[in-house]
Design a protein around this nucleic acid. Structure first.
Lengths: 234, 234
DNA sequence: CTTTGTATGATAGCAATACTATTATTCAAG
DNA sequence: CTTGAATAATAGTATTGCTATCATACAAAG
C-alpha cells in the first residue's frame, strides 16, 4: 500500500483544511486517540488542546465544534474504506467474488495493519467509527448537513456496492437498503459481540464469523427467487 | 387494546419510579415531546422543568441525568413493542406467519393509533426512539449499564424473535444477529427514507415497503440452503 | 388534632462546557 | 525588512449539568 495516498473529502465539515498544516494533522491524529479513550460525550476541545500542547482557540480555527470534527473523521473513514475496497477488488472479474471480498475488507477494516496514511491510526479510527458514527446523522441538523454534502462519501460507497448487488441480480428491488443495512450491521455486530453479546451470535474478535454472517445475508437475499419478484410477499 | 396495561421495567434507570406519581408521569409525557422537538443534544432538564411548570431539582429526583431518562424511554419502548407483538401474534399457529406479522407490527409501531398507555404518545415515542436510541448504548458506560440490566427489555425481545427464527429453521446459525440486524434496520430505513433517501430504496412513510424489505431479508436468510449449513461460505 | 414523613417548589450556587474576542508572538514569503 | 498568516496566551460570557438548602403542602400515623 502506498504511503502517499491522499484521501480528500467532497465537503467542508472543517473551517480550515486540517491536512494542510502540521497542527491540523496533529488535531486529527490526537482527536482519534482521545475520542477512543474518552468517548464522544466526554471529549472536549479543551482536553484535545491540552493533549496536543495547543490551545482551545487554535482547535476552533479548524473545526466549528466537536460534532463537525466527528463528521470529518467519519467521512474520512468512508472515503478510506471505499479506497481500500476498490483497491482490493479491482482485479476480480466475478461480481460475487468481488462482493465477498468487499465484505471481508469492510469487516476487517479495524485489523488493517498496513496504514494508508502515516498520521492516522486506522485501527483506532475504526473503533471510534463503530462506537460513535451513528451520532453524526442522528441530530436535528441532519438535513442541513446532508445538503452541505457531509454524507457524500458514505452515499458514494453505498451506491457503488448497490451497483455490485445489481450486477449479481439486476432484478433485486432494494440494493441500497440492503447495502446500508449490511454496512450498519458490520459495525453493530462487532459492537454487540464486545458489549452486548446476547444480541448476537458472533464472538468478539471473530471477524470471520461476522463476515460469514453478512455474506449469508447478502447472498441469500440476492439469490432468493422471491426477491427477483418483489411483488410476492414472504 | 386495554387502557389499564402496565409496562414495567426490569431495571432502575430511574431514581424514583416515574409511573408512581403524577409529576413522574408528566415528566415522561413531556420529555417525549421535548426530545422529539429539540433532539437529545439540545434537550435539558431545565427546559423540561420549564415546559411542565416544575423545577430542575424536581426532575433530578426522578432521573440522574438525561441519558438515564432516554435509557428509560427506550427500554419502555422495547417492552411495549414486545407486548404489542405478543398480543398481535399469540393466536397465529404458523411460525412463518407469526414472524411476518411481527415485522409488520415493528415497522408500523409509529403508526399505532390505539394508545396502550394514556399519558404516553407512542407515535412520538417511536420517532424519538428511531432518532435517538443508538445513543443509549453507544457510550463508555455501556458495560456498566448492561450489568445493571438497562438492556434487558431489548435482549428479551430479541431473544424471543430469535426463538421464532429457530422455529422456522432450527439449523440457522445466527438467529440473534439476524434479529438485531433486522430491528436496527427497521429504524434505520425509516430514518434514511426521511433524511438520507439515497441510502435506501424505500420511500418515506411507505411502511409496507420497509416491511416488505425486512421480510425479504429474514425469509431469504432462513430459507437459504446455504444457511442451513453455515460451513459453506458464499 | 397534632406529629411526622414525603413530595414538591423556590432559590442559589458552582464547576465544566462551548464557545468568542483580543492581543501577542512567531515565522516564512515578498 | 516588512507584511501577513498561523498560532499561542489570556480572558471572558452564556449555558449546561448538577447539588444544596430551605420552605411549603399535604397525607398518614399516632
Amino acid at each position: 500500500m502506498a504511503a502517499n495516498i491522499h484521501i480528500s473529502l467532497k465537503h467542508q465539515s472543517y473551517l480550515r483544511d486540517p491536512e494542510s498544516t502540521e497542527l491540523g494533522k496533529t488535531i486529527i491524529a490526537q482527536s482519534i486517540n482521545l475520542l477512543d479513550e474518552l468517548g464522544f460525550e466526554d471529549f472536549t476541545f479543551r482536553k484535545l488542546a491540552a493533549a496536543i500542547g495547543s490551545t482551545e482557540a487554535s482547535v476552533y480555527r479548524y473545526f466549528e465544534n466537536k460534532h463537525k470534527l466527528l463528521a470529518y473523521l467519519v467521512s474520512w473513514y468512508w472515503a478510506w474504506l471505499d479506497y481500500l475496497v476498490t483497491f482490493q477488488t479491482h482485479n476480480i472479474p466475478d461480481p460475487r467474488e468481488r462482493m465477498s471480498r468487499a465484505i471481508e475488507v469492510i469487516v476487517k477494516a479495524g485489523q488493517n495493519d498496513d496504514p494508508t496514511i502515516v498520521y492516522i491510526d486506522e485501527r483506532v479510527l475504526h473503533r471510534v467509527v463503530v462506537a460513535e458514527s451513528a451520532k453524526v446523522h442522528h441530530t436535528k441538523e441532519v438535513d442541513a448537513e446532508n445538503k452541505a454534502g457531509y454524507f457524500l462519501e458514505l452515499k458514494h460507497f453505498c451506491h457503488s456496492l448497490a451497483l455490485l448487488i445489481l450486477e449479481i441480480n439486476p432484478a433485486y428491488s432494494y440494493p441500497h437498503a440492503l447495502v446500508s443495512t449490511m454496512l450498519e450491521a458490520a459495525h453493530q455486530q462487532l459492537f454487540y459481540a464486545q458489549h452486548l453479546p446476547s444480541l448476537t451470535d458472533v464472538k468478539a474478535d471473530r471477524y470471520n464469523e461476522t463476515a460469514d454472517f453478512l455474506k449469508h445475508i447478502v447472498f441469500a437475499v440476492v439469490d432468493s427467487k422471491k426477491h427477483a419478484n418483489p411483488e410476492q410477499n414472504g
